[in-house]
Design a protein around this nucleic acid. Structure first.
Length: 272
DNA sequence: CTGGGGACGGGGCCC
DNA sequence: GGGGCCCCGTCCCCA
């Protein structure tokens, strides 16, 4: 039995963020994930991938765990950067499990990205923030995110009135009102097929994402990522008020909200 | 109050 | 332009 439901009202003030909405939706086809060519097996295990389902969760032998040694998380906002560099230089271990290295540095997209970069393909960069994109079309979409909400280009969701300056973001949001993908077990419905896919794991108990360090498995990749951080001895998020440090940004946020800073007028920015 | 984990929406990117 | 997929961040619950 799931402990919580998306339909629960939001509790009190949050630092920021969209909050949760509650999906209820009709059935729809659940698209199977397809493992893109070049995917690294140990890092993307596959929610709902046929091969995996057959095998169930088979955690690979724990590799020499990760060395606690990833203090080179220089930027807490982007803990993967140095890993990526090492990986692509061939210095990071490649294993069959979700080791710290493997988990943080590799995913299909980053590999594809790096290959295209090796090929020297031209990147289109955003003049405002410097982010680069493979195509001018992708850059054009991205530029929309820099528009002001006051912009004439801003559009509102016809259902809830929420305003968006980015049309792809609006399109995505509109989908959240169209809950086509319904769980056959509990009836909960989702706007996107992969959300249902993830939800189904709460019924099946399938946990494709395993930690190579302790063997614990997770149904959600994001949760494994957070779990991996709990293995780290390094706490990169520091409270500017009391200087306590935390392994996860969410812990710091929670601390700021509950302990050092009370009330919306305070901000407890993550330092490091 | 902290740490850990389940769940899921938004944004980004590729095809 | 749309679909599919993934990461990130957040909300919430519980020990």
């Amino acid at each position: 039995v799931p402990r919580r439901r998306g339909s629960e009202p939001l509790r009190g003030l949050r630092l920021h963020g969209p909050g949760r909405r509650s999906p209820r939706q009709p059935p729809g086809p659940v698209t199977r994930g397809v493992v893109p060519a070049g995917y690294i097996p140990h890092c993307l295990a596959p929610a709902g991938y046929a091969a995996d389902k057959k095998q169930g969760l088979a955690l690979p032998p724990a590799e020499p765990a990760y060395a606690p040694a990833h203090e080179e998380y220089g930027d807490p906002e982007s803990p993967r950067s140095s890993f990526s560099a090492r990986y692509f230089r061939g210095e990071a271990a490649v294993t069959d499990s979700y080791s710290m290295d493997a988990f943080f540095i590799t995913d299909g997209r980053s590999r594809r990205r790096s290959e295209s970069q090796r090929r020297g393909s031209h990147r289109h960069s955003c003049p405002e923030c410097g982010k680069t994109y493979a195509t001018s079309s992708n850059l054009s979409r991205h530029k929309q995110t820099h528009r002001s909400l006051d912009s004439k280009m801003a559009r509102k969701c016809p259902t809830c009135g929420k305003a968006y300056v980015s049309m792809p973001a609006l399109a995505m949001h509109v989908l959240t009102h169209n809950l086509k993908h319904k769980c056959d077990v509990c009836g909960k419905a989702f706007s996107r097929p992969w959300l249902l896919q993830g939800h189904m794991r709460s019924h099946t108990g399938e946990k494709p994402f395993g930690c190579a360090h302790c063997g614990k498995a997770f149904a959600d990749r994001s949760n494994l990522r957070a779990h991996m951080q709990t293995h780290s001895a390094f706490k990169h998020y520091k409270c500017k008020q009391c200087e306590k440090t935390f392994a996860l940004k969410s812990y710091l946020n929670k601390h700021c909200e509950a302990a050092c800073f009370r009330g919306p007028e305070h901000s407890c920015a993550a330092g490091n």
